[in-house]
Design a protein around this nucleic acid. Sequence first.
RNA 1: GCCGAGGUAGCUCAGUUGGUAGAGCACUGGACUGAAAAUCCGGGUGUCGGCAGUUCGAGUCUGCCCCUUGGCA
Length: 307
Amino acid sequence: MKPIIAVVGPTASGKTALAVALAERLKTEIISADSMQVYRGMAIGTGAPTPEEQARARHHFVGMLDPFEQFTAGTFGRQARVAAAMLNASGKPAIVAGGSGLYVRAFIDGLFPGPGKDESIRARLHAEAEFAGAAALYERLQAVDPAYAEIILPGDLRRIVRALEVFEITGQPFSKLHQEHREAEPPLDALLVGLDWPRDKLYARIDARVDAMLEAGFIDEVRLLMEQGYTERLMQLRTLGYREFAAHLLGRQTYEEARAAMQQNTRRYAKRQLTWWRGDSRIHWLPQSADTTPEQRADSIVALAGM
RNA sequence: GCCGAGGUAGCUCAGUUGGUAGAGCACUGGACUGAAAAUCCGGGUGUCGGCAGUUCGAGUCUGCCCCUUGGCA
């Protein structure tokens, strides 16, 4: 029996409903690996588990932070491992469900024990990039960590800054720390299950889910966040849906434009999620269709896990 | 009905003096270890409305037809 069952898949693939059904069967709790559902006041637009779903199974890492607070994959990975260990200690498996690939990886594989982010270093490096161009920073990365420079692309400023930040703090190349961690620390023992929909069915589910969010009062949710002063935060996060409807509420686009953009950007996000997981050979992909229920899916996974 | 404008990629359009077509968006493939619903990179997918004519060669010139659209009736 596996101590961890991780349910992954693109947005709108039914991870939450499946996780709840699984948790009920196994009498355990759910660890949400979702970088946006951790925030309060964003339940509708992030498709967070409903109060009813949370009553059926306890969810960790949902609605626990103010949108102004910073959260990172590293923090999540550490805290989630603690939560899973506590469940395992009382004889329960941990159900992990989430769409944030990096969060799932931080949990299962762990991140190297290097430094977290340093806002002042990042601000300085971004200012440098503004002044001298991203290419100048990329050249510096080539000098201090040629192996990593080879992996990322010269235009990927975010990763260039991160790697230089790690080098400044530790004096070690990013790729070396990464490599050492992989060799030193094995991944957690987990059953990885992927929800696999035909592309057209998945896109139809995404479009329908956006409309369901709008009917559930998504615009009011965005308006309330803006009234509370989170406008820039929402725009800075560029969070799916919130960005589009914040722009709508600011008069920059019509309702229909915002709705269409939210659906399109969500479809693109789903595509990126699929790319992330397609390369992971540990995942058992379960073909999905509309005529199976979350309960039936949960039963087949319980069987797969040998529990 | 008459006059004008236009039919080229899924959409909006570009296309010199005739040399079998290309931009943006859409779509799609990929990368990715502390901002990750973020960030970055690659890929042109086509009866050029139809049929004939001129020509070595037609998206391009000519004729007829079909369709869309604006104006006048």
